[in-house]
């Protein structure tokens, strides 16, 4: 039997790496937006960057799309510096803020963007995919907020990209439009595409992501599958009045204010069961889901 030698790719970059940050720091004035962050996007995956506002998600995304330069560290997109136009031929981006040329028609905007790529998607097919087909002749200035956002996301797919970067793609969309957009992103992934997206919504990561990276305060705090991350940040709040509370398992954080308690936990059922078993004399019991923002605050405000 011969042993196959394990070949390690040069310079630490795996062969399937599509885009990466290596030890990247970025500071804006007094704010350290990113602090020695390393992150790699692998071919075929759907990576979600999760974190509260101001965590550094958008800075990471802007660096990878070539919109900003790192203070230190290196940024790679298809092995090149994303600031070079040629590196971005296989990239599609939806920035966080939607901007469209108001005086141009939807179809004209798609044609303008198509002109930049060697092998663009068909305009009609693309508009169909994002439910914009009947709006082709409408001027962008006359679109609703949701329609504008859908078009901004569709534009990321115009060049038949190998990687799409979507910065909070579904912000401002209603539930139905959000689900339709998720379906479009999933379809793209089944066709071999790679996606990097940021989101505030755990639900969105759950629907789409194959891997999640949690970022806060400019650093990577956690990384794993959606289930793993959910166990860490998918918290519930258990509120009640009581005179005292014994040691309870599975509580990530306990807040106490005179006689009222707030317990943060991934498993509220188990916590309530323990409260009953321990015969805690509680009143006004309330259990509610915690937003991602609150969960981060609860987990990081130690």
């Amino acid at each position: 039997m011969t042993r196959v030698a394990k070949v390690s790719p040069s310079r630490g970059a795996s062969l399937s790496e599509v885009a990466a940050l290596h030890q990247v720091s970025k500071r804006f004035g007094q704010t350290q937006a990113l602090d020695r962050v390393s992150l790699s996007v692998e071919r075929g995956e759907l990576l979600a960057l999760l974190g509260p506002n101001g965590a550094g998600k958008s800075t990471a995304i802007r660096l990878l799309s070539g919109l900003r330069r790192p203070d230190t560290g290196t940024v790679r997109l298809f092995g090149q510096n994303p600031q070079h136009a040629s590196a971005r031929v296989h990239l599609g981006v939806t920035p966080q803020e939607t901007g469209l040329p108001d005086g141009l028609r939807v179809g004209e905007v798609v044609q303008l963007v198509r002109a930049h790529y060697p092998d663009p998607a068909g305009a009609g097919e693309l508009l169909e995919r994002f439910d914009l087909a009947n709006l082709e002749r409408r001027q962008c200035g006359g679109l609703s907020g949701g329609q504008r956002r859908r078009l901004a996301v569709a534009l990321a797919f115009v060049g038949n990209p190998r990687l799409v970067i979507l910065d909070e793609p579904t912000t401002g969309l209603d539930v139905e439009a959000r689900r339709a957009l998720w379906a479009a992103v999933k379809y793209y992934q089944t066709q071999g595409g790679t996606a990097l997206l940021t989101t505030h919504y755990l639900e969105e990561a759950e629907a789409l992501a194959s891997r999640v990276v949690v970022i806060n305060g400019g650093r990577i705090r956690a990384e794993g599958t959606v289930a793993e991350i959910k166990a860490r940040v998918g918290l519930r709040q258990v509120r009640f009045q009581a005179s005292a509370v014994p040691q309870i398992e599975g509580v990530s954080r306990l807040e106490r204010n005179n006689g009222s308690f707030v317990l943060y936990t991934p498993n509220s059922d188990a916590v309530v069961r323990q409260l009953v078993e321990e015969q805690v004399n509680f009143s006004d019991l309330e259990v509610k889901a915690v937003s991602l923002e609150e969960a981060f605050v609860a987990l990081t405000a130690e």
Binding site: S65, G66, L67, A85, S86, A87, R88, V89, L91, V93, T94, P95, E97, T98, G99, L100, P101, V113, H116, Y117, A152, L155, G159
Partner: peptide, 13 residues
Amino acid sequence: SAWNIFERTLPLP
């Protein structure tokens, strides 16, 4: 304009 930011991500020197 936010459109200008999007344009910057296109492969245009």
